[in-house]
Amino acid sequence: MIPIHYYLILSAVMFITGVVGVLTRRNAIIIFMCIELMLNSVNLTFVAFSSYLGNATGQMFVFFVMAVAAAEAAVGLAIVIALFRNKQTVNINDVNILKW
């Protein structure tokens, strides 16, 4: 049988891949996709624990995370479109208005 460690390590690798993507890429859409990747790595952890513990709650969480991800996709992409409309770019280096 496959020990749970394997799933967890895969999840960690995927999560860090997402983190590295978020930290290094400048294209807002790719960053967005990296976030999706991170969400999925967490989902994997949930499902793995759910199966190994025999508790369906973990899969409930995956369900809700997906709902949130869908909502996030809708709003996030809307933001990207709005950003592009205003700045003609999705490069987040050009969007540093958090600094005032």
Binding site: N40, N43, Q59, A69
Partner: peptide
């Protein structure tokens, strides 16, 4: 597929439908 190895059939289907099917199409 990994979800299927974990016997999470529902999540596996949803994963295809929602993520691969809906969200990524939107992206």
């Amino acid at each position: 597929g990994i979800y299927l190895t974990l016997n999470a059939q529902f999540v596996a289907i949803i994963q295809i439908l929602v993520y691969a099917g809906a969200i990524m199409v939107l992206v």
